[in-house]
Design a protein around this nucleic acid. Structure first.
Length: 1124
RNA sequence: GGGCUUAUAGCUCAGCUGGUUAGAGCGCUACACUGAUAAUGUAGAGGUCCGAGGUUCGAGUCCCCGUAAGCCCA
């Protein structure tokens, strides 16, 4: 058995082969089954929707999930990964409508709800094949055979079960929110619909600056100066909302002024309050400070002057007279018609005072609620509160002056609008205000306003009934438990998510749609009785009752579908015997996905932490140890998971979460199919294979940062990391096969290993621990980068390069064995450490190694165990020494470079100044390595006794700074001025009195850093305290050796060019007149022969058929003969 | 409008609790190596650490105000 050698590796092909192997041998299943009984690591899959095609960002998101599941498996946990599909919701509906060429209005007419939903059910799995394909090809291990699907009956039943729990706790209630609403279409509009192009249009509306008359009170007395009438000025582009005004909103930090002037329509003297910054908008500079007494009715210039100034905070709670006193009640009289604060008030336009009608604006609703201002409502015949505008967009009867009028002129028919005496309601309101001395300014104003995409008519913001989950009741607990969750990055948990929880509003569950989970609530017509259904059995029982009561005829069939329209055809009977109909709403799809911890297992119990499966307990799969999803899910999935778990079970549903960022194109732009900059994941995987793709994504940026995806980067990863690893393996395989190394021998004793063997093993064991930590802390990027650095820098560029000869030279002996063992161990360990990130190639690497050694009984790296770092094998001092060797070599290289002395030319010595014995011992231990690496004969150490060292000294800022902070400038200067003698004194006595004039401080050696950066008369280089001097004198012998080495090099080339095998022996004949060459050959004949595998080396005077070789300074003719 | 994130070499990213020459890879230039070879090594050039203030003996790092980009929410 020998190690597989690769001529040209195609990583994508390897991945295909490995994938086939996994499939054939059920490796994923085994990786779960073999851990049966082990501690579990619980992972939840955030369900994707298969109604769109997968993109490259899904590869990213899923790689993150996969990495930690694979890692935990290696660590011995059992990690089940149930897949899932998110199937309900608006995107599915829109796609179906697009395909069928219909709109929502056609549902129930051109197409039945039943047919429509059947279409949705098909459409939602449209691209399932592509998704499954991607999942497989990218190596994402998730159970696709038994996924949870949110439209399935069992799933929905669990949702109902949970909803009923909310209901029973009194956390499910019906209320309203202010939403975009199209009276013409009679429907609310989703934000998605409002974001359709063309919905926002510039329109000219009648805008009014209305005067709200301030009531006199203790609080408002500061606004009055005698008998004047004082008004707040508030601007609106929707005058129809003025009869519903409940409050005026000011910015606390905005400055306001009172201006004395006259009303331009009634000419009456008035005092008005508005933002100081906006005075110039309403008052002409020319009229400023004109005498008020001189004003006559109809004058063009209306005199004015600023009378007083107030802060917004001073105006709070001041009452004013209701502008349109059509309806009122005790509540309103007590709490409305006053000034309240609002952050959204600006002085960009208007008056700096904003009118709020709680029912007709989202901002208005929130500030009113926050300030405890009740909405302005009337009562209907049942005694329920109703807004002053009905659902058709008309004023109700109570608004006597405008009763029955449409609030927007576009709601009238074209004919009506053409009529000569037609006036839009906004204009009528303006006229009314002018006559009542309540209009300060009326003008047309052009602004952008949303329109209904179906009817083209303007949208109203209108209170719509909705069912809510009272999340606000659990706010504190939600925050508290969130603090126990490990968020990556932490800022998403504390910032984005934490702030969201702090500013929580109740969760609006209602959706007026067709394809989704129906709300299981039935009510009587008078709304006095309600029932919430929590299971199919319960529904069946209720249906039976209903049949007895005569409201239904048939029982539920076995295959009863819980979707619309079927649930809508069910009528229940109330406890008092009345007929009940289902509330027509569907629930927010986020409830579907947030409930997946329970619904995926058809949970119908009371406590998911119950260990008893018979009770429906989920203890071994709840809560999740780990979830990961895009940061855009913060207020989506992450929130709904958290809300349901905390509110129903007082638990967190996930302990660790990675919120990953976006995948952008290489210039940092968002990828979009429309712009054509979207990267096709299938093409990328096919070209570069999944390993390089995953490795690139993970190593390039932290998952939570946005990734600028550059395909060149994938190519680079493949070349640099995988190429190096592959080359190292191939190098190993080539010689290990020649020597038949199969690691059947016992490990070479530590004492018989070389310094570099022990070093690489030490580094490897350090790496095992560091990578383990990184994975444990959910830092995959750190893990990937550390592995990569080890492979490229330590293993390949240092260990292999330094030890190459050991692999191919000489007989198979213990030293060789040690080299093979070391490299084998490195490669096998890397395969394991990197397997979670690059699952395919690492599996192949592991298997190729293990196939020969048979060390492990596992068929796949993913069935093996994470390596254990052995602290005995870690030698920090050795790691430091080696670092010094690397630095010294680098310095010598750079000196050679400067002097144009190539490495093949041996040099006699380097000198290293050492200020302490320790450094010398360190360097001595790696002396051989350095000498070999830089081709120098000896290292000499210069210590103090040589007397030629030039020392420099600088303060240890970190230490001295802590002690003497503010004196550092002085100290630094004084130390900088130290003489040779000063340094010597400090070194000798470990004490130096530093005189700062007013103060003396004593320095020890720890307070300074002393280094030697120069040796007079020598070629010197230094870096970070290490200094090296190079002797560049060339003796005759060194020159000869240099030539000999050159000659070896040329002959080796010739061997290779002639196609000789590594083990072929040759006879060499040389002809040259050059004396140096002759001398070199004589002196170094043995060396040359050994290196070139020559049995004979002869200098001849005539050479037939020889080849001319270019040496640096002359030519030489050579002839090689192979010995057969 | 609010919240959060990011900004360091041409590009992609490191830079620990503040400490005095700001690093790596790619790319570029030059050289070397040539039995790991469609590989590899070494060196060099390349920086207003987004901008302006502040704290400090000392700021890429801490604070404040901006700018730009992105995401979420309104």
């Amino acid at each position: 058995m020998s190690y597989k050698e690769y001529k040209n590796i195609n990583y994508a092909e390897v991945a295909d082969e490995v994938l086939a192997f996994w499939k054939k041998n059920d490796v994923f299943q085994k990786s779960v089954d073999e851990r049966e009984g082990a501690e579990t690591f619980v992972f939840y899959e955030g369900p994707p929707s298969a109604n769109g095609t997968p993109g490259i960002h899904h590869v990213m998101a899923r790689a993150v999930k996969d990495i930690f599941c694979r890692y935990k498996t290696l660590k011995g946990y059992q990690v089940k990964r149930k897949g899932g599909w998110d199937t309900h919701g608006l995107p599915v509906e829109l796609q179906v409508e697009k395909e069928l060429g219909i709109t929502k209005e056609d549902i129930g007419n051109k197409i039945s709800v039943e047919e429509y939903n059947a279409k949705c059910r098909e459409a939602v799995m449209k691209f399932k094949d592509q998704w499954d394909d991607l999942t497989e090809k990218m190596g994402y291990w998730v159970d696709l055979d038994d996924p949870y699907i949110t439209f399935e009956k069992n799933y929905i039943e669990s949702l109902w079960h949970l909803l009923k729990k909310f209901y029973d706790k009194g956390l499910l209630y019906k209320g309203y929110t202010v939403q975009p609403f199209s009276p013409a279409a009679g429907t609310g509009l989703s934000s998605h619909e409002l974001n359709q192009p063309g919905t926002y249009r510039d329109v000219k509306d009648t805008s009014v600056v209305a005067q709200f008359k301030v009531k006199k009170s203790d609080l408002s007395s500061k606004l009055f100066d005698g008998d004047e009438e004082v008004f707040f000025l508030a601007w609106t582009t929707t005058p129809w909302t003025l009869p519903s005004n409940g409050a005026l909103v000011v910015g606390k930090k905005i400055k306001y002024v009172k201006v004395k002037t006259f009303n331009q329509y009634t000419f009456q003297p008035i005092s008005v309050i508005l933002a100081k910054d906006l005075v110039g908008k309403y008052f002409s500079e020319k009229a400023k400070n004109l005498a008020l007494e001189d004003y006559k009715e109809g004058d063009k210039l209306i005199p004015w002057h600023i009378d007083a100034e107030y802060a917004g905070a001073d105006l709070l709670d001041i009452r004013y007279e209701q502008l349109f006193p059509y309806v009122t009640n005790d509540d309103l009289e007590a709490h409305a018609f006053k000034v309240i604060p609002g952050d959204y008030v600006t002085t960009e336009d208007g008056t700096g005072i904003v009118h709020a009608a709680a029912l007709f604006g989202a901002d208005d609703y929130f500030v009113s609620k926050a300030a405890g201002v009740p909405p302005v409502v009337a009562k209907d015949d049942k005694g329920d509160d109703i807004p002053l505008v009905d659902k058709q967009g008309r004023f109700i009867a109570e608004v006597t002056d405008f009763a029955g009028k449409y609030v927007k002129e576009e709601y009238y028919s074209d004919e009506e609008r053409k009529s000569s005496d037609f006036k839009p309601t906004d204009v009528l309101i303006a006229i009314h205000l002018k006559e009542a001395n309540r209009a300060f300014k009326v003008e047309k104003y052009e602004h952008s306003y949303p329109h209904c995409w179906r009817t083209d008519k303007p949208v109203l913001y209108y209170p719509l009934d909705s069912w809510f989950i009272k999340t606000t009741a659990y706010k504190d607990r939600l925050v508290e438990l969130n603090n126990t969750i490990n968020w990556k990055p932490a800022s998403t948990g504390s910032g984005r998510f934490g702030n969201w929880l702090e500013n929580l509003v109740d969760w609006n569950l209602s959706r007026s749609r067709y394809w989704g989970t129906p709300l299981p609530i039935w009510v009587t017509e008078d709304r006095q009785e309600q029932k919430c259904i929590g299971s199919i059995a319960e529904l069946e029982a209720e249906v039976k009752k209903s049949i007895s009561a005569g409201f239904m005829t048939d029982e539920l069939g076995e295959d009863f579908d819980l979707h619309r329209p079927f649930v809508d055809d069910i009528f229940l009977v109330s406890d008092s015997g009345k007929r009940m109909t289902r509330e027509p709403d569907l629930i927010d799809v986020w409830f579907d996905s947030g409930a997946m911890p329970y619904a995926q297992f058809h949970f119908m119990g009371d406590d998911p932490k119950d260990a008893n499966q018979a009770n429906g307990g989920l203890s071994d799969v709840y809560p999740a140890d780990f979830i990961a999803e895009g940061v855009d899910q913060t207020r989506g999935w992450f929130f709904t998971l958290h809300a349901i778990a905390v509110m129903l079970f007082d638990k967190v549903s996930f302990k660790n979460v990675i919120a990953n960022g976006l995948v952008l194109d290489k210039s940092g732009n968002k990828m979009s199919k429309r712009l054509g900059n979207a990267v096709n994941p299938f093409e990328t995987l096919a070209k570069y294979g999944p390993d390089a793709t995953r490795w690139y994504m993970i190593s390039n940026a932290n998952p939570w940062d946005n990734l600028k995806f550059d395909i060149e980067g994938v190519a680079e990863v493949q070349r640099r990391f995988f190429g190096t690893l592959y080359n190292t393996y191939n190098f190993f395989a080539l010689y290990a096969n020649l020597d038949k190394f199969n690691f059947s021998e016992s490990e070479v004793d530590e004492s018989n290993k070389t310094e570099s063997d022990r070093w690489i093993i030490s580094k490897l064991n350090t790496l095992i621990g560091l990578v383990d930590d990184a994975y444990n802390e959910y830092e995959p990027t750190k893990a990937a980068r550390m592995i990569q650095d080890f492979v490229i820098d330590d293993m390949s560029n240092w260990y292999v390069r330094l030890n190459r000869k050991r692999f191919w030279k000489g007989e198979y002996n213990e030293d060789k064995m040690a080299a093979y063992q070391s490299l084998y161990t490195c490669l096998k360990t890397i395969a394991k450490l990197a397997a979670p990130i690059a699952p395919f190639y690492m599996d192949r690497l592991y298997s190729d190694l293990n196939a020969v050694s048979g060390h492990e009984s596992h068929d796949s790296v993913h069935l093996s165990n994470y390596p254990v770092a052995s602290s005995e094998l870690i030698d920090k001092a050795l790691e430091i020494r080696m670092e010094m060797a690397q630095k010294i070599s680098s310095l010598v290289h750079s000196l050679r470079k400067k002097e144009k002395l190539k490495v093949r030319q041996p040099l006699s010595r380097i000198m290293i100044p050492v200020l302490n014995k320790e450094t010398e011992i360190h360097v001595k231990a790696v002396e051989e390595l350095i000498l070999n690496e830089v081709n120098v004969k000896a290292i000499e150490f210069l210590d103090d006794t040589s007397g030629i060292l030039v020392k420099s000294i600088k303060p240890n800022f970190r230490k001295l700074g802590k002690e003497h902070g503010s004196r550092m400038k002085d100290i630094s200067q004084k130390i900088g001025a130290f003489t040779k003698e000063d340094i010597a004194q400090l070194e000798a006595s470990n004490n130096f009195e530093l005189d700062l004039g007013d103060q003396k401080i004593s320095l020890t050696l720890e307070d300074v850093e002393i280094s030697s950066q120069d040796i007079p008369g020598w070629l010197v280089a230094s870096e970070n305290g290490l200094t090296v001097a190079l002797d560049i004198q060339l003796s005759a012998e060194l020159k000869q050796e240099g030539v000999a080495r050159d000659l070896v090099n040329r002959i080796q080339n010739l061997r290779k060019d002639s196609g000789l095998e590594v083990q072929d022996k040759i006879v060499v004949q040389l002809q040259s007149s050059d004396e140096l060459l002759k001398a070199s050959v004589e002196s170094f004949r043995d060396y040359i022969c050994q290196e070139t595998q020559a049995n004979e080396l002869n200098l001849v005077s005539d050479l037939e058929g020889g080849q001319a070789l270019e040496m640096d300074e002359f030519e030489v003719a050579v002839k090689l003969d192979v010995i057969k």
